[in-house]
Amino acid sequence: MKKYHQLILLIFSIISLVLFLIYRHEYNRLHYVLEVFNFFGQPCNFSDLQTTDFILRQQDWGPQPMWQETDNGYVYSAFLTGKMKIKAIALPRDSNKLPKNCYIWLEDKKKPISGKFSYSKIVDGGGSSLVPHFYYCSAEIIDNTPFAVSFTSVVKKEVNMKKILLTDVTGSRNLNINTTICVLPSNFSKKKFVEFFSFHRLLGVDSFIFYNKDIPYRLSKLMINLSNRLDVQLAFLPWNFPKIDIFITRVIIENDCLLRTHSRSNFVAILEYNEYIVPTISYSINDIVKDLKDNVYKLSLPVQKFCINNANVNKPLALQNFEVATDARFNSVHFVFNNVNNNAVDTNNLDRTKASIHKYVKCENNIKTTTDFSMNKFSTDFIRSTLVQLLIHNQL
């Protein structure tokens, strides 16, 4: 009889455990549904955001940049940095054959005025034959407002000059954006895009600029229309770079991003989709940058190379892979830029006990590794974030 009592208790225990697991599963499903309803309203509203003929107004980062072919090279973007001072990002085909002339176009004039041209190298090229330059054009201060600039090697008729529209970064503005992340272009993956965005939004990043090579328009439109609900600023800038060069791409986008966000965003970081800013002991970007002094211009973060060994589609990649390669070749650093104090020149180097960049890559076989579980403290909020849940349930 005692054996039957034990059997009955065992059966009840198993049934209770099964019912508990079923309840927990259904609770999590209900929690997710309620989160989605609370976030989007009724399900039809989500569909409307994808098919609407309207796009919400976002932060104005100036005219959309575009590579334009000019005499002996290309110009990507140009910025009005003073009353009649212009700074453009260019990529000449030959550094020994640069433009000799520049012209500034004014809003109420049919003909441009001639300016004084000068230039400087942004970097030496990092071994590349392509060397990005800054082109400068300046003129006497006048009352009219410039809106475009042209660079030529020879004097041309006005109709043959290519205009590069100007982004005005002069004057003081209300710094309503705390942190902007500018994202380098790469081969598109919806999973990488959603997880990168969701994690950094979780950290408190309130502005993203995606340099867009192949992000589907449907997704970019949807994200912009969701931005009010996400309480974030989003921008997608075209990237039609005429060459394939990772080093040059990073240099140009870094400088375009810093000029574009000047006096508009307190802090700026330039990252790839597989790079995550991960605080070691804190939970937000603000905790990382709050102790910066006024004379600090750059915050240098160590890079850790995480090996991708697991790729379950139903879980964020960063919550599956914790093996860190002990590879000295990846001891490079990324920067978070402080754009508030123009006179700041110092760099503050952080160690891994405070924060680091987690870079998720394929590793060679038999590579030596250590483990780093610092990402785990974000796991609950990361997995439950609305866009990640929509992605997991194939609803995005």
Rank of each mutant, 00 (worst) to 15 (best):
A325S: 15
P216T: 08
C182T: 05
D94V: 12
H393T: 15
D231M: 07
S13Q: 06
P279V: 06
F134W: 14
K111I: 05
D94E: 13
G82R: 05
V36W: 13
T353Q: 13
L21R: 07
L299A: 08
L91D: 07
N376L: 15
L98A: 08
S150G: 14
L396A: 07
L184G: 02
K121P: 01
N228I: 12
N38A: 14
I215A: 08
A90D: 00
V194P: 01
I277L: 07
S379M: 07
S186W: 07
S356K: 05
S114F: 07
T167W: 01
P99Q: 09
L80Q: 11
P146T: 02
S227D: 03
V333Q: 11
S16Y: 13
K293F: 00
Y276M: 10
F117A: 07
S379W: 00
T145V: 14
L259N: 02
K368F: 08
L30C: 10
I164P: 00
F210H: 04
L396H: 04
H31E: 15
K243S: 12
S220C: 08
I285A: 01
P99R: 08
G115C: 08
I55Y: 02
S220N: 05
N255R: 11
N28W: 15
V296M: 10
M66I: 09
G73R: 02
V333G: 02
G171S: 06
D48P: 00
F193I: 05
L271V: 04
L319S: 06
D206T: 03
Q6K: 13
K293D: 10
C307I: 13
N174G: 08
Y136R: 08
M375C: 03
G171E: 05
N314V: 04
I281M: 12
H5Q: 11
K191I: 07
S374K: 14
D287S: 15
C182N: 06
G171N: 05
Q6E: 11
I252Q: 01
R173N: 10
F210Y: 13
F39W: 04
N331C: 09
S153C: 07
N338H: 06
R260S: 08
W61V: 03
L202I: 02
L292F: 13
D108E: 12
V205H: 00
T386H: 11
I14C: 13
N101E: 13
N310T: 06
K243Q: 14
E195Y: 01
P92A: 03
N101T: 09
Q42S: 15
F199H: 03
P65S: 02
V232N: 02
D94N: 14
F39K: 12
I177N: 04
Q320D: 09
